[in-house]
Design a protein around this nucleic acid. Structure first.
Length: 330
DNA sequence: GCAAGGAACCGCCAAA
DNA sequence: CTTTTGGCGGTTCCTT
């Protein structure tokens, strides 16, 4: 249902940028809001543009994006009036920006007055510096989760989420997840019909399936150039094999005891736990791709029986495979 | 949802 | 003497 009154003023959506803010982090979410605003005028479904979009920076003028794709005009943040939704960009410059007192101070000052505040990618580091993540749940790009946890020990970092909401503070994972987040905000404001229409126009999911941990686990293992990296690759190709400690140890030419010890040291997880994760990841991905045959997915994922798959889903995700499936096939 | 059996894990110690 | 590796047994966790 559309919940916008006929006289509503556009809600100001403001993106805070800084030198080296990443253009995709900035452009993606802003595009979602801008499209939503245009959608209103194009279709007449909404009485007026629901959002007005602008960028602010410490100083006025073009901001150079790290991708080198363009120069975009921004206003100095001193001039900016009312803000409904404040977005904090991510990018290579975020670490630097998180140490910038004026920038961080401005965020901390504005935060209480805005309806909601959101970070994209490494923008979460700025939220942390502004003290906004204390005793809150948040996420960021998977490669920066450790850094975020270190910067704000009081923050409960969710390494698997695409985006996280805790009260009025939102945070999203890597680059494109900023668009997922923006879409969720649109859905919150204007309902799922509008969000869906905008998503379709942009060719996006309204609710993107899966979690970033799936990707990061894979990427991290791929980056290893030791024998465990190779073992990871072999395992994901052979999930339906019995991947018990004895088998894996034999493959690596080690005794089971030694293998288990080295594996845990290198991968940060025990062999069985790691294998269970890989199997779970595989099955999740299959469901996200639309697989419906539980028995078959369980078998190809290496769980053998549906029972085993269900228990692992319950244990680690807290929901059954059927619930998981339902969630992504609406 | 439970019991029985098995696998995994970990601390400890010994050998290389 | 220290470091790396392998084996044993008790406990926990998982599968059947």
């Amino acid at each position: 249902m559309i919940r916008e009154s006929a006289t509503a003023k556009p809600r100001p959506v403001v993106m805070l940028v800084y030198p080296d803010a990443q253009i995709l982090d900035v452009a993606g979410p802003l595009e979602v809001f801008a499209r939503t605003a245009r959608y209103a005028t194009d279709t007449g479904l909404l009485p007026g543009p629901p959002y007005s979009v602008e960028m602010v920076a410490r100083t006025a003028g073009p901001v150079v994006m790290s991708s080198g794709l363009g120069l975009v005009a921004s206003r100095p943040f001193g001039d900016v009036g009312e803000i409904d939704t404040l977005l904090i960009a991510g990018g290579i410059g975020a670490i630097e920006a998180a140490r910038d007192r004026e920038l961080v101070g401005w965020i901390a000052e504005r935060a209480p007055g805005v309806r909601r505040i959101a970070s994209i990618c490494t923008g979460a580091l700025l939220l942390a510096s502004a003290g906004l993540l204390r005793e809150r749940k948040a996420t960021t790009h998977w490669a920066y989760c450790d850094r975020l946890a270190a910067a704000e020990p009081g923050c409960n970092v969710d390494r698997d989420a695409i985006f996280v909401r805790d009260g009025k503070v939102y945070s999203s994972a890597g680059v494109t997840s900023g668009m997922d987040l923006a879409l969720a905000l649109v859905e919150e404001d204007l309902g799922s019909a509008v969000a869906l229409a905008v998503a379709q126009e942009l060719v996006l999911y309204v609710k993107r399936p899966g979690g970033q941990a799936q990707f990061s686990r894979h990427l991290k293992a791929q980056q290893r150039d030791d024998a465990f990296g190779a073992l990871h690759l072999w395992m994901i190709e052979n999930l339906d094999e019995p991947l018990d400690v004895g088998q894996l140890a034999a493959r690596m030419g080690m005794s089971p005891r030694h293998f288990a010890r080295r594996f845990a040291a290198a991968m940060g997880q025990t062999p069985a736990a790691y294998v269970a994760q890989l199997r779970l990841d595989h099955c999740r991905r299959r469901f996200e791709q639309g697989a419906r045959n539980l028995k078959q997915v369980a078998r190809e994922g290496g769980f053998g029986t549906e029972q085993n798959m269900r228990r692992t889903f319950q244990r680690t995700l807290g929901i059954t495979p059927t619930d998981y499936l339902d969630r992504f096939t609406r």
